[in-house]
Amino acid sequence: MNRRYILPLVTFIIICLIWDVVVRANGWSVQVFPGPLVAINSVWELITNGTLFKHTVASLYRVTAGFYLAALIGIPLGMILGRIKVIKDAFNPLIQFLRPISPLAWIPLAVIWLGIGDPPAIFLIFMSCFFTLLVSTMIAVESISPIYFQVAANFGFSRYEVITKIVIPAVIPEIVTSLRLTVAIAWLVVVAAEMIAVQSGLGYLILDSRNALRMDYVMVGMITIGAIGLLLDYIMLRLARVDCAFWGSLK
């Protein structure tokens, strides 16, 4: 164990101790502000009865579906927009108009259009990732050095080769970075999305526990969200170190 792991652990323990002391000193009831021991106990309780696992899987499913959909549509579209000036000129104002609208503003329409259940939640996550991925891919493609395209022309690349040998590898580092940012946004939005139209997921767990005045369960929801967020970021960070993205960190 080196300092990189010990130091955060120490910080974490100190925060928990302060939390415990504050709760005990003020004598807050469990319904208002549960202490760390109660929270940890509840985490264990929800793990053993399977509730936490069920809700986590439901949330992860929605995030994955919405996020993949946004990546599969947003990245190729961003490449087209970045390469073909006419299409960019036609669509860019519309994109910039839609982009600042919070995905949460789509909630009423999402529910009316798609009913309740998974579809509106997936739609909201899609909306939260799509524009960021689209715009960052577009900018990344536009900023590829023109020299590489001249090399491509000089060596007689076909259109397909230009895409596979120049455009895609050139933008992979930027795309990995924006995937890392958007997966965090998706994880933020899923909680809000699950508070409206579904009966499962970590957002639902939090809302339902609030209605039952179980603040310890609310905290379990928050702790799980935080832990999974940390894990997702770690995975995305590892992704930036794969061979084909690594050259970007040395630019």
């Binding site: 020299i147 001249q150 060596f155 120049i166 590898p169």
Partner: peptide, 18 residues
């Protein structure tokens, strides 16, 4: 237009870094 009969060696790096 560009042709692979005449290869241009660039002033700055024309090698593909990836």
């Amino acid at each position: 237009g560009p042709s692979s009969n005449y290869i241009y060696v660039f002033q700055h790096n024309g090698l593909l870094p990836w």
